[in-house]
């Protein structure tokens, strides 16, 4: 059986036309899938009996619930979802006053091998489909109250750009969830060809993982630097004509004694010269076997102040869900992949 969930309006319309059904049936199905959030084709009651019977022969809705939920003392939740190929992914739900942010995964594992990230330690186990990405939004308890979506879970979104763009289409189109693209942020380590396409084909916010402005240091933290140097990423951003609403932020995990010096402040200022940006400082959450260390709070504050004094708008992101391994860089389903 094929899943209907995860198909765009165009795909649904083509599918029904091929089946000999009227084109508007595609729009009706989209409505049932993404607005009314039904679990079965039989629940699509404004479709003719014949249409439902024909659909049920080859298709199912194709949503799947989480198999496990963990809750942090700070209210953050971590959901474990199975994927179509017997693997698992994690999704974090982060409540913060009025904001309900869901952090979705875009791949099972990751190819990028960043030194500070748990997901990278499981290697790459497969791509998620658009349906598997959107399922993480639809099948959590808070689905009707989500205010923001961030693509900062497992995987590198720009290494699965086709499905990520398709999922954004579903989330932002009127026939889908009709969510404002300004409430969606896609985070990348900077795969330049995909970055260009994303900037041109989507209106969502962008977050770039920088972590250090120095090439040699970044190469040791993030092997992708060899293929796509940070400077080429920043050049692309500098060249793109952002409208006033679209946000670009730079993610910067602060490691004690490594990337939190005045030298780094100076180089960040030089690197981001002329780029309208916001720097998000992230506390490092030590993972097993890491040679990297947390920075102390005083140093972190001083680093933030120094960046702000240079005119670079900088804030410190609150750590959430660390006790359930839901915080930044801690998602992993390595053990489960082996079991499966």
């Amino acid at each position: 059986m094929q899943a209907l969930f995860g198909k765009t309006l165009d795909e649904l319309q083509s599918l029904v036309v091929e089946m000999g059904l009227p084109k508007f049936t595609g729009k009706q199905i989209a409505d049932w899938l993404y607005k009314k959030k039904v679990a079965s084709v039989d629940d699509m009651t404004n479709l003719s009996k014949k249409a439902r019977a024909m659909l049920s022969e080859n298709f199912e809705v194709g949503t799947f619930p989480p198999v496990k939920v963990q809750k942090s003392t700070d209210g953050t939740k971590k959901y474990l979802f199975p994927t179509a190929h017997g693997k698992y992914i994690e999704t974090a739900m982060i409540p913060d006053k009025e904001r309900q942010t869901v952090c979705v995964s875009s791949q099972v594992g990751c190819k990028m091998g960043c030194l500070f990230c748990m997901t990278g330690k499981q290697g790459f186990n497969g791509q998620l489909t658009a349906g598997e990405i959107v399922n993480q939004v639809q099948m959590i308890e808070e689905t009707d109250h989500i205010t923001n979506i961030v693509y900062m879970g497992m995987g590198e979104p720009f290494d699965n750009l086709e499905e990520v763009l398709k999922s954004i289409d579903i989330l932002t189109s009127d026939w889908g969830y009709a969510m404002s693209p300004r409430r969606i942020t896609v985070s990348t380590i900077g795969i330049v060809p995909a970055l260009k396409r994303f900037l041109n084909e989507s209106k969502c916010n962008l977050a770039i993982s920088v972590h250090t402005p120095f090439d040699d240091e970044r190469q040791k933290l993030m092997p992708v630097q060899l293929a796509y140097p940070l400077k080429s990423v920043i050049d692309e951003i500098r060249a793109f004509d952002f409208d006033s609403q679209r946000k670009v932020s730079f993610e910067y995990i602060v490691f004690g004694g490594l990337n939190d010096t005045s030298r780094h402040v100076k180089e960040m200022n030089r690197l981001l010269n002329g780029v309208r940006s916001h720097i998000n400082l992230i506390r490092f959450h030590p993972i097993p076997g890491t040679p990297l260390e947390k920075t102390d709070e005083q140093r972190l504050q001083r680093f933030k102040d120094e960046l702000n004094n240079k005119g670079l708008l900088t804030t410190i992101r609150a750590s959430r869900g660390q006790d359930i391994y839901a915080a930044c860089g801690m998602l992993s389903t390595k053990g489960l992949q082996k079991d499966s």
Partner: peptide, 17 residues
């Protein structure tokens, strides 16, 4: 390598992307 005492600064990685 890190567990065996090699400093991460002495490891250069190239991954197939």
């Amino acid at each position: 390598l890190i567990a065996k005492g090699v400093r991460y600064e002495n490891i250069v990685s190239e991954i197939f992307f």
